[in-house]
């Protein structure tokens, strides 16, 4: 009796989590899959007609936005690596006693809603706003220069939004790298750059892998940055899904796009994991 209880305990403890996932993830996903195969409209109602044709139809219509989303996501991810890796490295190796403070500073923007933060970027980057206005009056930028409503603004906005998701996993891995290992590399004739490339970077790959997933997936699917900072030429697939759902009430189309995006991201993630070596992924999962 006692033995049965001990073997069942972990499963019972995991139960709330499983129920949560089933109720709020698995059921809606199946519901959406079902919805994508329906036809009809909001007035007359939707009937299940197994309309698989909606899939080639949405790909043909929205391939441009899909590609743009992936490109923006990729650019934002690369930007996050470029900014976030040195930041994580510095906090982990040179943060000293103030590591916790630096991490808190990094997370501080999360205390303000994402939409508000993105809107404040709109003010900052406005054609005659604090940054561009000052540069223009100083003669450093031509009068016609603008940042808003460009792909640059959207990519920077995405990188800004998701930067902490890149820094934190890299930091977590670097923090555990024994400093003596880096010293050992120096001792064995490695320059600072060689020690980084041969020892620190390989050891931080699991964190980098996690960071890329955490930034690339949500930034590819993001719609806030594109709608606030982008213009009509910078529409991302997230904006399409949002408008098809909430404006056009075209539920089957919106569901189909969602699944296309999900499929592309899943295929992308698995080929990425394969390329990096499953060992690294397992290590990430083990954490």
């Amino acid at each position: 009796m006692a033995r049965e209880r001990t073997t069942a305990t972990p499963y019972l403890l995991a139960m709330p989590g499983w129920i949560w996932l089933a109720a709020f993830f698995v059921v809606p996903i199946i519901g959406m899959l079902w919805m994508s195969l329906m036809t009809g409209n909001i007035v007359t109602g939707f009937q299940p007609t197994f309309n698989f044709g909606v899939y080639p139809q949405v790909i043909a219509t929205y391939w441009e936005q899909i590609l743009r989303s992936l490109a923006y996501g990729l650019c934002a991810t690369l930007l996050c690596i470029a900014i976030g890796y040195p930041l994580a490295f510095w906090i982990a190796f040179h943060g000293g006693r103030n590591k916790a403070t630096y991490l808190l500073l990094l997370l501080l923007p999360f205390f303000v809603s994402q939409i508000l933060r993105t809107i404040s970027w709109k003010f900052l980057l406005a054609d005659n706003g604090v940054i561009l206005g000052t540069l223009k009056s100083a003669g450093l930028l031509p009068d016609g220069a603008h940042v808003l409503s460009t792909s640059t603004a959207v990519v920077f906005g995405l990188a800004y939004t998701f930067l902490p998701f890149m820094v934190l996993p890299i930091y977590a891995v670097l923090e555990r790298v024994d400093h003596r290992i880096v010293e050992a590399a120096h001792d064995l004739y490695a320059s600072r750059i060689q020690a980084f490339v041969r020892v620190v970077l390989p050891l931080s790959l699991p964190g980098l892998f996690a960071g890329v997933l955490l930034v690339f997936v949500p930034s590819s699917a993001d719609y806030v940055n594109a709608s606030v900072l982008g213009g009509t030429h910078n529409t991302m697939i997230g904006n399409i899904i949002q408008s098809q759902y909430l404006v056009n009430n075209a539920y089957p189309v919106a569901s189909a796009i969602t699944f296309v995006l999900m499929a592309i991201l899943l295929v992308g993630i698995f080929s990425y994991a394969k390329a990096l070596g499953t060992e690294q992924v397992m290590e990430v999962q083990a954490k």
Binding site: D178, E183, A184, A185, D187, L188, Y189, S191, L203
Partner: peptide
Amino acid sequence: PNRRDVNMVFQSYALFPHMSVADNVAFG
């Protein structure tokens, strides 16, 4: 340190965990 002709054996060994024994030894 990388320009000094001395090598150190660390108390914690400080082996490179991502490399094989042979690669560790070949590093220098």
